[in-house]
Simulated assay, not measured.
Amino acid sequence: MLTEATRATAPATAAKALLAVRGLEAWYGESHVLHGIDFDVAPGEVVTLLGRNGAGKTTTLKSIIGIMGKRKGSVSFDGTETINLPSRTIARLGIGFVPEERGIYSSLNVEENLLLPPQVKPGGLTLEQIFELFPNLKERLKSQGTKLSGGEQQMLAIGRILRTGANLLLLDEPTEGLAPVIIDQIGRTIAKLKREGFTIILVEQNFRFAATVADRHYVVEQGKVVDMIPNEALERNIDKLHGYLGV
């Protein structure tokens, strides 16, 4: 059940939503993973999906971008219903997905990895703008993509999507396994992208990091959104959040 705070917030958010997800269900083969996901994201917002491992957070991102084998419900992006569209069409609407495993091509160098995805919309960042965000990439331009450190590979995966013109970014566990100094850099990058008008959905286990960048937090349990906590209310709901996450 959604809390009263969630119900009170949802209609106002839905009225201006860039992304509206309603009754989203998804399956891996015969395994029913999502059981009616509902949430909204307004233009320019950063929201997180929080929850224990296996709750359905990554599956939600994959369902939004259309790479699940079976899904049903409604996913509306900028007024376009996408639930029956193939992933290549969804991406061209302006949704970019950075998977947890990053998807760096081992046979390509940094520059080739950056240039590989097509531009789907006007407004994508130039290489120079990407290098302003991630100076390390410019220094490693001719290095093989998979020879980079974990942090550099994460920068490359995010930079590659920013070049395409996508304005909704789906980031799956962007700080996992990274050193604190790199996590800080990723956080500064997300904050800058937000200031520049990007909309971001972040799956993140590190809710302390999420609190530094997000506007709102959706809690996912057993394939459903069970709560929404505004970032300004996070501290006074910390015990409840610990209960959700099993901390």
Score class of each variant (00 low, 15 high):
1 M>P: 14
7 R>N: 14
11 P>Y: 03
13 T>Q: 11
14 A>M: 14
19 L>W: 02
23 G>T: 10
24 L>C: 08
25 E>H: 15
26 A>H: 01
29 G>Y: 09
30 E>V: 13
32 H>T: 10
33 V>E: 00
34 L>H: 00
38 D>A: 08
38 D>E: 13
41 V>C: 11
41 V>Y: 01
41 V>F: 05
49 L>W: 00
49 L>H: 00
50 L>K: 02
54 G>F: 05
54 G>Y: 08
57 K>N: 04
59 T>C: 09
66 G>H: 07
67 I>W: 07
67 I>A: 13
68 M>S: 07
68 M>Q: 11
72 K>L: 11
75 V>L: 09
79 G>M: 02
82 T>Q: 01
84 N>Q: 08
86 P>A: 11
88 R>F: 08
89 T>A: 15
90 I>A: 07
92 R>G: 11
96 G>E: 04
96 G>N: 12
97 F>E: 03
98 V>T: 07
99 P>H: 06
103 G>W: 02
106 S>W: 08
107 S>C: 11
108 L>I: 13
110 V>S: 06
112 E>S: 06
113 N>W: 02
113 N>F: 01
114 L>M: 15
115 L>R: 12
115 L>V: 03
117 P>S: 15
117 P>F: 06
118 P>E: 13
119 Q>W: 04
120 V>T: 13
127 L>R: 15
132 E>T: 15
134 F>L: 11
135 P>I: 14
136 N>E: 13
136 N>D: 10
137 L>D: 03
140 R>E: 02
140 R>C: 03
140 R>G: 00
140 R>F: 09
146 T>Y: 02
147 K>I: 08
147 K>W: 09
148 L>F: 12
149 S>H: 09
150 G>M: 05
150 G>R: 09
151 G>Y: 06
152 E>C: 06
156 L>K: 00
159 G>C: 10
159 G>K: 02
159 G>P: 02
161 I>S: 01
161 I>C: 07
163 R>I: 11
163 R>Y: 12
164 T>G: 03
173 E>Y: 06
174 P>C: 12
174 P>V: 07
176 E>M: 10
179 A>Q: 13
185 Q>N: 11
186 I>L: 03
187 G>W: 00
189 T>M: 13
191 A>E: 11
192 K>W: 07
193 L>N: 05
193 L>D: 02
194 K>E: 14
196 E>H: 10
198 F>C: 08
202 L>A: 12
204 E>C: 10
206 N>I: 15
208 R>S: 15
214 A>C: 14
214 A>N: 03
216 R>F: 05
216 R>W: 05
218 Y>Q: 01
219 V>P: 01
225 V>T: 12
226 V>P: 06
227 D>F: 07
228 M>S: 00
230 P>K: 05
231 N>L: 06
232 E>Y: 09
232 E>P: 03
234 L>I: 08
234 L>E: 04
237 N>F: 07
239 D>N: 12
242 H>Y: 14
243 G>V: 13
244 Y>G: 01
244 Y>Q: 04
247 V>G: 09
247 V>F: 09
